[in-house]
Design a protein around this nucleic acid. Sequence first.
DNA 1: CCGAGAAACTTGACTGATTCCAGAAATGGT
DNA 2: ACCATTTCTGGAATCAGTCAAGTTTCTCGG
Lengths: 147, 147
Amino acid sequence: MAELRWANEMLQQAGLRITAPRVTVLRVLAERPHAAADTIIGAVRSDIGAVSTQAVYNVLQVCTDAGIVRRIQPAGSPARYELRVRDNHHHLVCRSCGTVGDVDCAAGEAPCLEPSERLGFDVDEAEVVFWGICPDCAPPVREEETV
Amino acid sequence: MAELRWANEMLQQAGLRITAPRVTVLRVLAERPHAAADTIIGAVRSDIGAVSTQAVYNVLQVCTDAGIVRRIQPAGSPARYELRVRDNHHHLVCRSCGTVGDVDCAAGEAPCLEPSERLGFDVDEAEVVFWGICPDCAPPVREEETV
DNA sequence: CCGAGAAACTTGACTGATTCCAGAAATGGT
DNA sequence: ACCATTTCTGGAATCAGTCAAGTTTCTCGG
């Protein structure tokens, strides 16, 4: 079970207490990147039994604040969470089903882009969301018809 | 009043019926770009009297669908609406007060950026949000909570 | 080993933003 | 002006998430 201890270490290094809900949330996120709170709650419950909804929201909140979890909120979908947090990568979101995919940031460090005008803002991050249709939602075209 | 008729024309060209709520919502948006539904409802009411909340939401919905209004939904803030819709420009959002500013897209046509990997998605838009602190919320000023 | 204080969890009410619904009113083509 | 269609009204309902109060659990000094 030593290989399952990474979650404990993540929490420890972030200065957070190690508790069953926390460890489980992190493990769930490792398995299902971009899961919504809803999904996470379900997975945590089927993993360790009863856990309050609030507890999971608390865990997500403290982990996000501690910088070990990243929250993404694509328009029209509930918040999603992921563990990839160091690299400032971006996301592909399906307009039809909401599926989220990761794309590496082409430009390296944050903010990876510069606004053309700054309007006096002190910009620290450029968040990029690529909108499109995922392979599963693609219109049913026959393979022969490759226009 | 001929110069106030642009709203009617916009609706007409979009194939939408001309009604007081619609015309007023468009005028409000012209004056206050990036307004939230809340703000729009207030402004419409002080303009033409009683209008149901639902009516405004309907107007925003049909206009967005018709492509004459654009909806933006920065994380942690209610949806905002704007009339700039042809050019695919981007936004600056203040982490503190939520103020939104426009920035022209440096790269021209949509999608102005290309994801480094496509994962099979058919990408049609790259949405960029620059996060930062606006001049009004900049540090040197004393922290007078207005959240 | 014990107890105090802090941190985390549970429960349940509550909020804000938005949508759904059914009926009444307004719009625009003939 | 008439009528079918579209839009607006009012109110209930939903969804995602937050708040607050009370209880349990952990951690650490004595």
